[in-house]
Design a protein around this nucleic acid. Structure first.
Lengths: 188, 188
DNA sequence: TTAAATATGTACCGATCGGTAAACTTTGAA
DNA sequence: TTCAAAGTTTACCGATCGGTACATATTTAA
């Protein structure tokens, strides 16, 4: 029960930042929404930025674990797992509380290319990319780099378009496009 | 020379918000960066939100005008114009001062689905979508809606991936994917 | 049982937030 | 040339910002 207050703070803060934004959320709001006193917060994290970094690390772990597991559950072969990315995405988008991608938001609120928060956000995307590329390679795709990057483009586009309500069925449309690209990549 | 101070304020404010973010930019910063006094600002715009809305309207006009013109210049047929979207995108991304999409940022800092800033941002994407769909229809694509949405997914994904440096050649990879989708859509 | 560790609430810090008031200067059209 | 419109500077408002001090309560391990 010792370290759990810190964990609970991070988990609840993740939700608050996700729903309200980083700059728009003050430490007093965090106190009110998480139930953790400000003194305790600053005992665990030296600054607000440090807390945000912990939030991003937590989100990276949980989101990546969930996504990769869901892709495995929904697809038996590497090819179908790659397409299952968009089925999992669809679940996420249609699920409760979806508000876009926390890392896109973080990197756009902290744009400085050397800012730790920007770097941490970018790292998450790079880890996704690596996983997709490994799957593409296993599936026998020749240019696995290209396909992995393109799947990532479709994924990010779907998340943004879902958040901005540009399209009604972003994940489905992304999946259809991904299927076309995948079958082309496997045909040669 | 009368109305031009308002215009200059909007244009300079666009750059400041783009480079530094909306919540992160205070009105005093705006005074310092635009050279326009706070009194004058509040004579033209009742609130900061109103100024942001004017910024988004200005950006929507200039960006859409530039993009559509560039697509026409770079492509002779509707098909090649659709692909030229990604050539123009490439120019933008590689050009000076690129920091992602102002509308994605605005909608993620003002997430409330009924907030005027969110609605204004979403409108920009809808106008792009309409244009792409019209081009796809002219090109003879059967399911123009689907293709237009997929091109938009690739475009948004490329912008985000460029901003987060996930991929080195986002526009090129998006263009290649778009070419594949387009040729499939025209084949039937 | 007790003492250290770890919470808490409250009050506060200087700086900045969005926004206003008022007195003064520049500008442009009749 | 004159005068109102539109600009500026400066000072200010209450609220909130990120962050700290301190005295008190609760938890936990010996």
């Amino acid at each position: 029960m010792r370290a759990s207050i810190r964990d609970e703070l991070v988990q609840r803060a993740t939700q608050v930042f996700y729903q309200r934004g980083f700059h728009a959320t003050g430490m007093d709001t965090l106190v009110a929404e998480t139930g953790v006193s400000k003194t305790a917060m600053y005992k665990h994290f030296r600054t607000k930025d440090d807390l945000i970094l912990a939030v991003l690390r937590f989100r990276d772990e949980t989101l990546r674990n969930w996504l990769f597991r869901r892709m495995e559950e929904l697809g038996q072969t590497p090819e179908s797992q790659l397409l299952a990315l968009f089925d999992a995405l669809d679940e996420w988008i249609k699920g409760p509380g979806f508000q876009g991608c926390l890392f896109i938001k973080a990197s756009s609120e902290f744009q400085d290319a050397e800012h730790p928060i920007y770097l941490q956000s970018a790292e998450h995307k790079r880890l996704l990319r690596r996983h997709f590329r490994a799957l593409a390679t296993t599936a026998g795709v020749e240019n696995a780099d290209l396909l992995a990057n393109q799947l990532l483009l479709l994924k990010e586009g779907a998340i943004v378009s879902a958040h901005m309500k540009t399209t009604q069925y972003p994940a489905e449309e992304a999946r259809q496009a991904a299927g076309a690209l995948l079958s082309i990549a496997l045909r040669k």
